[in-house]
């Protein structure tokens, strides 16, 4: 609660929160908000590539579909992908970080070297390779993103666990006979939660960007889905005539990612006020 109040006092972080909540609202009620919800799949060749007007505020695309509607409909998949990927990365990364951070020994070494290996491959290249080796598509892209993002959580949780395991209260808990599982799950994990939450918020923005890029490169969402990255890719052949075609889906990506980044920034300030929105 205190954290929320502090967050609300930071105007820039508030703006981020507003963007994220707005996107959430749009995603939930997309079919009712979009002026032409059927344009997710229908095309109207007769009205293709119309510039922005009162009828179509963002113009129409190469198949005559309303771009505003498609931007609104695309919000849902962008958020679903981000939540799924970050969720899966948490499920892999957090246990590995906890385990490796708690004990010294060969298991800890092996786990952290494994994390280093995954970190040593640039994420996009690995995602592309996976996307190609499995069948290209949205679910593959999501799997690839999760497989390449978990090391960041493992690193974060590892560092936190290392820090906490020498804490006095952990010694005290062990002294009164609390089991390792109990200490890790009920005491270490909640104390590491702020760091994990910040990582997750930034991860959301990062995942949305990378997923859009995979869509753009043709190994993510497939047509005719109203994916933002895909829309920018489709727009490429219609430049410079149809400037509105790539502009608005790209702005949607920018705003949503900006929202998550500003929010993550604000959360970081609260967790560590000493740094005053400075550390990455």
């Amino acid at each position: 609660m205190i954290a929320l109040r502090r967050l609300l006092r930071d105007p820039v972080a508030c703006f981020g929160l507003l963007l994220v909540l707005g996107a959430l609202f749009i995603a939930l009620f997309a079919p009712w908000i979009a002026p032409y919800p059927e344009d997710a799949y229908e095309s109207h060749i007769m009205q293709r590539l119309r510039p922005p007007s009162a009828e179509f505020p963002f113009g129409t695309d190469n198949l005559g579909r309303d771009i505003l509607s498609r931007v609104i409909l695309g919000t849902r998949s962008a958020l679903v992908v981000a939540v799924a990927v970050v969720g899966a990365s948490l499920l892999i990364g957090v246990p590995i970080g906890l385990l490796a951070g708690w004990r010294d020994g060969w298991l800890s070494d092996v786990l952290m070297r494994l994390t280093d290996v995954f970190l040593a491959v640039p994420q996009l290249i690995l995602a592309l390779a996976l996307g190609q080796l499995l069948a290209p598509g949205l679910s593959t892209a999501m799997l690839a993103l999760a497989l390449t993002y978990w090391p960041f959580f493992a690193r974060t949780v590892y560092a936190e666990t290392r820090r906490l395991r020498t804490a006095l209260f952990v010694d005290a808990l062990a002294g009164i006979g609390a089991s390792t599982t109990r200490i890790l799950l009920l005491h270490v994990l909640p104390n590491a939660a702020p760091a994990i939450l910040i990582r997750a918020t930034i991860g959301m923005g990062f995942t949305i960007l990378t997923a859009a890029l995979l869509g753009f490169l043709g190994v993510g969402a497939a047509p005719p889905s109203p994916d933002w990255g895909l829309a920018v890719a489709e727009a490429r052949q219609h430049l410079p005539e149809a400037w509105w075609f790539p502009t608005f889906p790209g702005l949607a990506i920018l705003l949503l990612v900006l929202g998550f980044n500003l929010l993550g920034d604000g959360l970081r300030d609260i967790a560590d006020p000493r740094l005053r929105r400075s550390r990455h």
Partner: peptide, 27 residues
């Protein structure tokens, strides 16, 4: 600078590339 540093990480590079092409090379 804060705006630049947060915004710079939020822009999709493929989109920025297309927009810069549109303005500086095409228009």
């Amino acid at each position: 600078v804060r705006l630049i540093s947060v915004g710079g990480l939020a822009i999709a590079s493929f989109w920025l590339a297309l927009m810069l092409q549109l303005v500086f090379a095409m228009e």
